[in-house]
Amino acid sequence: MILSSHFNYWIVIVLMMIGFFIVISHGNLVKKLMGLSIFQTSVFILYISMGKVAGGTAPILDEAYSVYSNPLPHVLILTAIVVGIATTALGLALVVRINEAYGSIEEGDIEMQDCDKLDKENANK
């Protein structure tokens, strides 16, 4: 039956869209990063789901089992998780610096300050 067979993927999509929504509608930079990580996690779930075999077990070879899930997506997602945390760390570091430079971590504030500065530069012209 289609409904149950694709339920996982639908969760993936819903999570993805929630992540997107956070990135779009929230002005807070940390919040955006959270949205981003939710978005990324949804992809992890997508990969892991496709590796799953019904009735299988974790791909650690043992005499007792004969059906294993596919290890390849696991490997890929391990890498992807690492990439995700690396990005988050870097993003947070940037947020810290932005906070120091602008005194705010709200997108609107920062844009305003930049616009003001540009206008000033042009006024000097």
Partner: peptide
């Protein structure tokens, strides 16, 4: 989903480091 390694990592990274 049988992805124990991944779960291990996600737990330590997502719940821990990040």
């Amino acid at each position: 989903m049988d992805a124990v390694d991944v779960a291990f990592t996600e737990a330590s990274v997502g719940a821990g480091i990040s």
